[in-house]
């Protein structure tokens, strides 16, 4: 799950191939989409002040999600270790 956290933050690989679709939310995995780090990397160059602040807010959201994933993973690992030692 640490790998999952790292993969969620993968920026450049996603920025190059993900398609940067704006606006439509779709569940089709083969349609052009977007990801938080890819949006930040792609739109940073042409962003004015408000846009930049919005992108930084997006980065905070990504940070929170990754922290939650890592905490859940650490909790699972610690609980399974405790179970292995306790019994």
């Amino acid at each position: 799950m640490l790998g999952l956290g790292r993969a969620m933050g993968e920026t450049i690989a996603a920025a190059l191939v993900i398609g940067s679709a704006l606006g439509q939310m779709t569940l089709r995995p083969l349609a052009a989409g977007n990801s938080m780090p890819a949006v930040i990397a792609n739109e940073w160059g042409e962003a004015d002040d408000l846009h930049k602040s919005a992108l930084i807010a997006l980065a905070v959201t990504l940070f929170v999600i990754t922290i939650v994933v890592n905490l859940v993973a650490t909790g699972i690992v610690q609980r399974s270790m405790k179970r292995a030692q306790g019994s």
Binding site: L2, R6, L62, I67, V69, L71
Partner: peptide, 18 residues
Amino acid sequence: STVMSGVPSIVMGLFIYV
């Protein structure tokens, strides 16, 4: 340290940017 190793690199970059 464990938390920091899971922080995405772009968030670290924006942290240094700010």
